[in-house]
Design a protein around this nucleic acid. Sequence first.
DNA 1: GCATTAACAGCCG
DNA 2: CGGCTGTTAATGC
Length: 224
Amino acid sequence: MISADRLRQIAFWAREFNETEIEQARRGIVEKPLAKGDYLCHRGDRLDFWTGVVEGVVKMGTMSSSGKSTSLAGCRAGSWLGEGSVLKDELRRYDLVALRDSRVALMNRSTFFWLYENSPAFNRFLIRQFNERISQFIALVEYDRMLSAPGRVARNIAWLFNPVLCPNAATHFDITQEELGLLAGLSRQHTNEALKLLEAKGLLRVERGGVTVLDLAGLAGYGE
DNA sequence: GCATTAACAGCCG
DNA sequence: CGGCTGTTAATGC
């Protein structure tokens, strides 16, 4: 379990919680470090924890039968995921893998359900979260047909900066071009060129070991 | 042919 | 010195 202060630090959804809710939530959460390349779960596993990224970057993706990996979305520190699988008590539909040394918070299923049954604030959060995920996965359908590298990079950056899924996001984020490549499913070189093109269009600024978003809407809609 | 991997020199912290 | 970046050369589909 974690302290109430720690909970407020890592869980933006607990901001409007009352004392009872905070107490329940903090008792039901443990933290776990992940080394670069570690899998938290594979597609098809049962993982009875709702998961928050506390530090680092975690990739949601799947591995095809041929062994080729497909990226769905990156989740950076501050974002929480897997509520669908916990709620429906189903097997995971994707892998979760740490792109760099990371730290996750795990909330057990019974705590999740207690909040679901008892906390209006948590339910408001869940609705917003699901609504945002729907948009994200609708965009994923387009994305599948959109082959352009700059488009892929733009989408993935826009997701990382999603203000609903990741509310504390500043405009700058430390992420290497290699990591962005892993998220977008591109080589580092290709990612590099895509980034420079997006920079030339004024959508972002490329920095050493990071990017600064200048036009989030422009990135989210790039390639339409 | 195109894109990915490999290799390497410059650069910045 | 170590990690990241930007190129070029080699390789694979």
